[in-house]
């Protein structure tokens, strides 16, 4: 059996499949269906300093081979997460990644500092949420802003720091370089692509927020391309995501340069997607005579 373990930002994962933030809550719901220890890791629902109620529904729309969402970072706040959710998650024998968000640099710092006294394994700093008016992707679309917030949080935290990048930029590689220069240990990409759907009968956008983030199989080739561009631009580790719904998709994004992967929207189609992808990666290794999966990272042989 192939060795599926990977290392990202110095953290060991038993396999490269991480449940993506926002799609997995705090794990309780999927735990009804499978053992969380089968996952490489869980990136929990994005957490802000105080409770956020999110956007007005409808917050989801079907798209060709994918979906739009406009949840808007609904979460109970960092104190609730640390007190009520994190201790339980840390017993689950899987890597727990705290996904944090803010609408100011001060908020990011405060949230990150609160996690210093916990045993959470890694921080994923979301500077790419397309669904909030203040902050969110505002930090992720300019190199200067991305650099400033990374620098500030790097100083504030003693945890491995992964910065989650938005694809809604001219050059994602430039943003990746900017956060690498300020001490990020890893980058994760891609967050969702901004999209819109309209009900032609009512002439209203389906999402009450009018626009939302596109995810699902439709975005896979964009994610593969961007991971490849970032791999060629930085030396830090990469968690690749965007449209992964099969083991082969995960292998593809790893070949493009990812060290681990996240799976999100696919869970809504198949609630077992993450564990199925682990099994499929194992078979992929067998078929392709790969002994150690991490060896394939960045292994694409370009023309």
């Amino acid at each position: 059996m192939a060795d599926l373990s990977v290392k990202v930002a110095g953290v060991e994962f038993k396999n490269p499949v991480i449940a993506a933030s926002g799609c997995f809550g705090y794990g309780h719901e999927y735990e009804e269906l499978f053992d969380l220890s089968k996952l490489g890791g869980i990136s929990v629902k994005g957490t802000t300093l105080t409770r956020r109620d999110g956007n007005i529904p409808p917050r989801i729309a079907e798209t060709p081979s994918g979906m739009l969402n406009s949840v808007g970072l609904q979460n109970p706040g960092i104190d609730y997460f640390i007190e009520k959710e994190l201790p339980y998650l840390l017993k689950k024998d899987t890597v727990i990644i705290a996904n944090i968000a803010g609408s100011s640099i001060e908020e990011y710092i405060e949230v990150a500092e609160k996690l210093n006294d916990t045993s959470v394994h890694m921080i994923e700093m979301n500077i790419s949420c397309p669904n909030v008016k203040k902050g969110g992707a505002g930090f992720g679309t300019s190199c200067d802003m991305a650099a400033s917030v990374t620098k500030a949080v790097r100083k504030a935290t003693n945890k491995p720091l992964c910065v989650k990048l938005t694809p809604n930029v001219t050059s994602i590689a430039e943003i990746a370089k900017a956060v690498e220069a300020e001490g990020a240990d890893a980058v994760s990409l891609i967050n969702t692509l901004l999209g819109m759907r309209i009900d032609t009968r009512t002439r209203r956008p389906i999402l009450h927020n009018n626009v939302g983030g596109l995810s699902g199989p439709a975005v896979l080739p964009v994610a593969v391309r961007m991971v490849w561009e970032v791999r060629n631009a930085v030396d830090i580790d990469i968690i690749g995501m965007g449209g992964i719904s099969k083991g082969n998709d995960a292998a593809e994004i790893m070949l493009a340069g990812a060290d681990a992967v996240q799976v999100g929207a696919a869970l809504f189609n198949d609630p077992f997607a993450c564990v199925r992808i682990v099994d499929e990666l194992e078979k992929w290794c067998e078929v392709n005579k790969v002994d150690k999966l991490s060896d394939i990272s960045g292994g694409v042989v370009t023309w």
């Binding site: 799609c23 809550g25 989801i60 949840v71 609904q74 809504f268």
Partner: peptide, 9 residues
């Protein structure tokens, strides 16, 4: 979305 309470949609 998920139908079971994880995605908050």
């Amino acid at each position: 979305g998920c139908g079971i309470g994880a995605c908050l949609v």
